[in-house]
């Protein structure tokens, strides 16, 4: 079954502050949508609503035609929504390999298993190693995550997401904190995922070169509201978008370069 994801009038208020304001959008399989907007625009909050860390005040998140707005994050993960976090969120005391294996194991529904045959466990392990190779972390497999440099932790964050093999991939600034030579491996991985016609990919990203290289569609959020939605060229040409970007991010003009 092909995947479908849509948001309808999605809204969340924290007290008087409306963090996400009546956002509606439908995402198509095989399409990579980049969500942009200045700091505090509600991008990460929007992600939290889709992956379930937050529940909307009103409006719905629909997956495959079902309203999942009140599902737990675990239920959404099992239904195929996978998320990598902007602020790295890993299992620091476990090894790099164990981190990825946990994600593979969760997908295979083997969390509670006590009596698996060694061969089956080896299969989990081999797949985890493959995901580590994809993000160039093979050499670090046995180290505890807490011993990893920040850039490598960011890569592991992406490996965990890939290991979930979700139908909806959500990347929150995947290359933030990575060095110039580290980022291409991650971008390659995202480009490969994007090539799969059955996946929906959502990406929050600031770096415009990344946006240009990957985006099929751009959504612009500003103060929680959706102000533009369309193909990259059209959206970036809109006066309102230029105004938001140059107004709010004037201090960082290279973001637009």
């Amino acid at each position: 079954m092909t995947v479908s994801l849509s948001l309808s009038d999605l809204t969340i208020r924290f007290g008087g502050h409306v963090a996400v304001d009546a956002v509606s959008a439908t995402f198509r399989p095989g399409e990579l949508t980049v969500i942009v907007g200045p700091n505090g625009a509600g991008k990460t909050t929007c992600f939290n609503l889709v992956s379930g860390q937050l529940k909307p005040t009103s409006g719905q998140v629909m997956l495959d035609g079902r309203d999942i707005s009140n599902w737990s994050p675990a239920a959404r993960a099992r239904a195929g929504i996978g998320r990598a976090f902007q602020l790295t969120s890993l299992f620091p005391d476990l090894s790099v390999l164990e981190n990825v294996r946990l994600a593979v194991q969760a997908r295979e529904g083997q969390g509670a298993s006590l009596w698996r045959r060694a061969r089956a466990l080896t299969a989990l392990r081999d797949e985890a190693l493959q995901h580590l190779a994809d993000v160039r972390l093979t050499d670090m497999a046995q180290l505890p995550v807490s011993a990893l440099p920040h850039g490598d932790q960011r890569k592991l964050e992406v490996a965990l997401l890939a290991a979930m093999r979700p139908r909806v991939f959500m990347f929150d600034e995947p290359t933030a904190g990575m060095s110039v030579d580290e980022a291409p491996a991650i971008l390659d991985l995202i480009a490969r995922i994007k090539g799969d016609p059955d996946r929906i990919v959502l990406l929050v990203e600031h770096k415009m070169d990344v946006v240009r290289a990957l985006a099929d569609r751009i959504i612009v959020l500003h103060n929680g509201a959706l102000v533009a939605d369309g193909p990259p060229d059209e959206v970036m040409a809109l006066p309102v978008v230029r105004e938001i970007y140059l107004g709010a991010d004037a201090a960082a003009p290279e973001a637009m370069a």
């Binding site: 994600a103 997908r107 969390g111 979930m164």
Partner: peptide, 12 residues
Amino acid sequence: ENEMRAEAIGYR
């Protein structure tokens, strides 16, 4: 180690 992430990768 990280209850939130455990939930996010699909563990109840």
